[in-house]
């Protein structure tokens, strides 16, 4: 009964499912005996501690002891040498995701609303949009590099592109599917132009935009981490592939503990962002009951 008071039931179920996942992992890792694929939980904890940068010294004297208490591997060594920490990598990736959302979402919404609202714009832009949408965002990386060199642009542009193309469809349908009769009703009450658009069509498209935004967050993460895995010396993608350049990666063996810690961190970051989006959306769209 007290438990019920402390946790609402949904929280309890949530914790139970997490505990079950952890237990299943421990069970599999102990039974499988393949630490190169499913490292034991202590390894994960060690990798997490090391990547968080808690008391790591790489100086030779206490290296042996260090090995004992802390997780170490080729991938971890490379990362530590490059000064990579989990929180640092996460911050860089979150920054890229947020940039992609900040630029891509307004851009996509603008295009979608325009195409949804104006028949003429739709006639001209829709075929181009369908072509553009079919291009995987990461395929732009090398071409952007030709234009802008090796820098931040070729990581950010694919993210912006991916987010914008994702947002076009919900904005487009949000406007299109606002039942014509509501537009008629508003018009027949004398609402035209900006009043009609801003106070009837846009709010009515709100739920579709929120759903689209939640997809866009996921797409932004996919593209960011993908771009970082290919061409970046920082961020979560870089952490997952273990730093260094592609050529060296073929020779070094990946550390499963680092990868799993990285994936879990990505999952948590994505979950947190989605929760924020839902909460903010709920406030903005509180008239949708």
């Amino acid at each position: 009964m007290t438990l019920k008071r402390v946790f609402s039931q949904r929280w309890l179920l949530w914790l139970v499912s997490l505990a079950a996942l952890a237990a299943a992992y421990t069970f599999v890792s102990s039974r499988l005996e393949r630490p190169d694929l499913v490292p034991p939980a202590e390894d994960l904890a060690g990798a997490l501690a090391t990547l968080l940068g808690s008391g790591v010294q790489l100086s030779g004297a206490d290296h042996a002891e260090h090995e004992h208490h802390h997780h170490s591997s080729e991938q971890v060594e490379t990362l530590l040498q490059e000064g990579v920490t989990l929180q640092g990598a996460l911050a860089v990736s979150i920054g890229r995701v947020l940039f992609g959302l900040a630029v891509g979402v307004p851009l996509g919404i603008f295009l979608g609303l325009w195409m949804g609202w104006s028949r003429r714009a739709d006639d001209y832009l829709h075929p181009l949009y369908v072509l553009a949408r079919s291009v995987p965002p990461l395929s732009f990386i090398t071409y952007v590099m030709l234009w802008l060199g090796h820098g931040e642009a070729h990581r950010l542009i694919p993210v912006v592109y991916a987010v914008a193309t994702t947002m076009v469809i919900p904005a487009y349908h949000g406007v299109r599917d606002v039942a014509g009769k509501y537009v008629v009703a508003a018009q027949s009450l004398g609402a035209g132009g900006t009043l009609l658009f801003g106070r009837v069509v846009l709010p009515a498209a709100g739920p579709a935009l929120l759903t689209g935004f939640r997809y866009a967050i996921a797409i932004a993460w996919m593209t960011t981490v993908g771009a970082e895995m290919l061409m970046a010396e920082n961020g979560m993608g870089n952490l997952l592939v273990g730093g260094g350049l592609w050529s060296s990666r073929l020779e070094s063996r990946s550390d499963p503990a680092v990868i799993i810690v990285g994936i879990v961190a990505l999952a948590l970051a994505g979950w947190a962002m989605d929760a924020v989006a839902r909460a903010a959306g709920g406030r903005l769209l509180r008239w949708v009951r």
Partner: peptide, 13 residues
């Protein structure tokens, strides 16, 4: 339509 409405044409669909 909205200009006509503003001239004083009311409509209940």
């Amino acid at each position: 339509p909205y200009r006509r409405a503003r001239l004083g044409i009311g409509y209940a669909p």
